[in-house]
């Protein structure tokens, strides 16, 4: 926003005292109420406003504190934002960013927990990014803001507290490049959004059994860097995609299919993990079962590598504990 006066940021409560978990803190004071403002509860029209503003030369960032709320904006996103460049023969350009957060834990329940990024991956004309590290969160956001097409920027609520190295100066992480986050030889783990953290933890559990897991963070779901994943699978022969979403018609199905199309080896073993095929329950006992975690991921990867010959699930380790989201939000 400092570098480009055409960047505008708005959404429900971006200007309140909580400032979207601090991500928008001080922006009103710095850039003014015309460029940074809280909106009426009108997701549909405000998405249309973002599109219209983008057409006028503005680069809007539209913030949604829950991905679930985007269901109110699907017409504008799918029918207009995704299609305008194409259906107007290249005459229209829509540089806009939609920040959408996924909730988890502390009883987020049915309508505060959905990922839904596969909806957007399905539609030509949208880009989708789900960074998992501070470095990528910043670099991808700047890439998204500078992009001349609409970008869905997916944030996981728990990841907001992840720490890691990040330069203070502006930089970009280019669209369509995955990152190998842990090198390994026996199995390829692709962890999407928050499940990237669980996969990295799972790789540490797997070390106990002598299994070396290569962990990949796709970062961008569209464009998807299938080459990096396929290259890894050529080496390991095994692919487990752990999605932060339901499995049917999801990112995991897409990634596995593309890998198998690219690596024509019928001996490659594949697996998918993700949400249980039900609505997310708030009761802790059920919510625990709803999500994959580092231990269940490790167990599944172990099965893939050992051909289900023996079953194993690691004991919980305090040094690999999950980051806890302390409610209330």
């Amino acid at each position: 926003m400092g570098a480009d006066p055409s960047v505008m940021l708005f959404g429900l409560d971006v200007d309140d005292h909580k400032a979207i978990i601090g991500t928008t803190r001080g922006l009103v004071e710095k850039y003014g109420r015309e460029r940074v403002f809280g909106t009426p509860l009108s997701e549909d029209a405000m998405t249309g406003v973002a599109i219209g503003a983008a057409l006028s030369g503005i680069r809007p960032i539209h913030v949604h504190i829950r991905m679930d709320f985007l269901m109110l904006a699907m017409n504008q996103l799918v029918n207009v934002a995704a299609k305008s460049r194409y259906m107007f023969g290249g005459q229209e350009s829509l540089p806009m960013v939609v920040r959408a957060m996924i909730g988890k834990s502390w009883g987020q329940g049915a309508q505060h927990s959905q990922s839904l990024y596969s909806f957007f991956m399905h539609v030509p004309g949208l880009k989708v990014v789900a960074p998992t590290t501070p470095y990528d969160a910043k670099g991808c956001l700047i890439s998204a803001i500078r992009d001349n097409d609409p970008v869905m920027y997916v944030e996981h609520r728990l990841l907001h507290y992840q720490k890691g190295p990040v330069p203070t100066e502006p930089f970009t992480v280019p669209a369509g490049k995955a990152r190998i986050t842990n090198a390994g030889d026996d199995v390829t783990l692709v962890g999407i959004s928050y499940m990237q953290v669980e996969c990295l933890r799972a790789s540490k559990y797997l070390l106990e059994t002598g299994i070396s897991a290569e962990v990949i963070d796709p970062i961008w779901l569209n464009p998807l860097d299938i080459d990096t994943i396929a290259e890894s699978v050529r080496k390991t022969g095994r692919l487990l995609v752990v999605d932060n979403d339901w499995l049917s018609c999801g990112a995991g199905a897409e990634i596995i299919t593309q890998v198998l199309e690219q690596v024509p080896d019928r001996h490659i073993q594949v697996g998918r993990m993700g949400f249980a095929q039900c609505t997310c329950p708030p009761a802790p006992s059920l919510e625990e079962l709803f999500y994959p975690n580092a231990r269940t991921v490790a167990a599944r990867a172990f099965d893939l590598v050992r051909d289900n010959a023996v079953t194993w699930i690691p004991e919980e380790r305090a040094d690999l504990q999950e980051v806890e989201f302390k409610g209330p939000f």
Binding site: T24, R25, R99, G139, E155, P165, L200
Partner: peptide, 29 residues
């Protein structure tokens, strides 16, 4: 980009100038 991943497993970290993601998003804005 020229970033080299350091194999961090997450968690709250040591905090020695390594901001959490929410600060990185703020900084990106």
């Amino acid at each position: 980009d020229d970033f080299v991943w350091r194999g961090d497993t997450g968690g709250h970290g040591s905090g020695d100038g390594r901001g959490p993601i929410r600060d990185a998003i703020w900084s990106g804005c």
